[in-house]
């Protein structure tokens, strides 16, 4: 029997969708505006290292003065350098670590 605490229902987006170890793919969208996802990262697949807590004001929205309630989960992910850059010279274990907002991530296989 679930306790009263276990029956608490959280609002949409209140809990992070991804956890450390999850494989995620960065969106390939190209919206116009203040976006904090470098072009080289779009479409890439990586692994979640950490959920940055607490959730943060989405500065992609804040850049236009729309910051009321726009808190977003923010993740530190790692991407192997050789998968980012074909012909990468260096150790195959070299990697990029970068933070991405949840709105840009989808679950990858």
């Amino acid at each position: 029997m679930a306790t009263v605490f276990e029956r608490v229902v959280t609002a949409t987006g209140e809990k992070p969708a991804f956890a450390p170890g999850d494989r995620v793919k960065v969106g390939t969208r190209s919206p116009i505006g203040h976006y904090r996802v470098p072009q080289y990262l779009r479409g890439q697949t990586g692994e979640v290292l950490k959920v940055i807590e607490p959730s943060l004001i989405d500065n992609e929205e804040e850049g236009y003065g729309r910051n009321a309630g726009n808190r977003r989960h923010y993740y530190r992910i790692s991407v192997p350098m050789p998968s980012l850059w074909p012909g990468y010279e260096g150790s195959p274990r070299d990697e990029l670590q970068i933070e991405v907002y949840e709105t840009w991530l989808e679950r990858a296989a």
Binding site: L56, Y74, G90, S91, R93, Q97
Partner: peptide, 26 residues
């Protein structure tokens, strides 16, 4: 690795390089 070498820093192959790219508030 090339950028580091230009600063005089040669990292052995068996040492992993982690580049951290800042995007927003971290």
């Amino acid at each position: 690795r090339k950028v580091l070498a230009e600063f005089g820093t040669v990292i052995p192959e068996d040492v992993e390089i982690r580049v951290s790219d800042s995007t927003a508030t971290v």
